[in-house]
Amino acid sequence: MSFKDIKGQKEAKEFFQKAVSKDRLGFFYIFAGPDGVGKGLFARELAKSLFCESGALRPGKPSVGTLDNCSSCPACLRIDSDNHPDVNWLDVRESAELVSVKDARPLQDALYLKPAEGPFKVAIVRQADRLSIAAANSLLKTLEEPPPGALLILLAAALEALPATVRSRGQVVRFYPLPRDVVEKMLCQRGLGEEEARYLAAISQGSPGRALEIAQRDGFQEKRNLVEAFAHLSKENDLKVAEELYRRAGKDAQNSMERRKRLLNLITYLLYFYRDIYLLREEAQGLLVNEDQGDLVRRLSQRLKSGAVEKIITILLETKRNLLYHSNQHLVLAVLTKEIVNLAVP
């Protein structure tokens, strides 16, 4: 893997190409954009370029005006395996919802150590928008007095979640969703079938990382089962379906935040299903994403009353908001199934 293998992100590539060609690589950058679009991959490739034994970005070497690296020298291979002494990563612990100041401090301390294999010390924080207030504040001292040769990169899906005092000190580099056809091609190259790749490319909103994450959890089959359950929703089984939805999201979840994320994915499946029903009624069959369950889409399109589909879509959008801010997720799901039954069942 190298920079040329990173799909899209033309602006980010041009930004750093310009910085490198003018020898103006800064100390602190914030990579902002949706999860799964290449922020972490780009940060890794940038780090590899700094340490690559080809010497393109190493001090004392003439600039060759490129960000690329060989990806095969010992330095590149160690960075790829997260085993380089001068490149440090910080992740949210599996059992935690936020990065604590205790978790963040070793990363900051590492920036002040003398580099072991070159002139740089690199620190990369994944999911920086989940830094606790204390952890974010502890970074300020490092930002105000950066050590020489240090490079700090924060990866954030929600830029506004970072304190303004942190945001104002960094150069924000934007990362964007990829075109659907590009994501679909990437998924097919990973071995997914065309039908599954087409569906996941549509619902992942330009994020190949999110699409692959769903695929790894057998999300395509999970979607099919969920849609079938809601297509046969009744006044006798609505609470049972809500219970199953809650149980399915919590299976192997490390914490409530992960359960919430999975619930939001499940509601997204339903949104695209009822969206397809709406599009079919508007004679826009070419835009359907649930092609594998087209018969079910057509059957419900004929069965649901006029105006019911639009109301169900509104209810699903409200459910997503409620799941974000309501602590009783089980109650939110019970209300969802009850409201859909009232609209869909005579």
Rank of each mutant, 00 (worst) to 15 (best):
I267F: 01
R260G: 02
Q254N: 10
N255R: 02
L233K: 05
G286S: 08
V227Y: 03
E291V: 10
V227Q: 02
V241E: 05
A229K: 12
I277P: 00
V289A: 11
L263Q: 02
K240A: 14
A284V: 03
E228V: 04
G250C: 03
L245E: 04
Y246A: 12
Y246G: 02
E244W: 08
Q293P: 05
A231I: 04
E236W: 13
N255V: 04
A242S: 11
H232G: 12
I277G: 01
R248Q: 11
R262A: 03
R247E: 13
L263Y: 01
Q285W: 08
R275I: 07
K240S: 13
I267V: 15
G286I: 06
R275T: 05
L239K: 14
K261V: 00
K261Q: 06
F273C: 08
K251I: 11
R275S: 13
Y278D: 09
E258G: 08
N265D: 15
R262L: 05
R260K: 14
L239V: 10
I267R: 06
D238P: 00
Q285T: 08
K261R: 13
K251N: 06
S234Y: 07
V227W: 01
R248N: 11
E258P: 05
N290Y: 01
K235F: 12
A284Y: 07
F230N: 06
Q254E: 11
L263K: 02
L287T: 09
Y274L: 07
E244H: 09
L264W: 02
V227P: 00
R248S: 12
N237E: 04
A231H: 08
Q293H: 10
F273I: 06
L263I: 05
S234E: 08
K251E: 15
F273L: 06
R262E: 01
Q293F: 10
A229Q: 10
E236S: 13
E236V: 14
L280F: 10
L270P: 10
A231Y: 03
D252N: 14
N265R: 12
Q293E: 15
L264N: 03
L280Y: 11
R247K: 15
Y246N: 10
E244Y: 06
N290K: 11
I267D: 02
D292E: 15
L287E: 13
D292A: 14
N255I: 07
L270F: 04
R259A: 04
R281H: 09
N255S: 09
E244M: 12
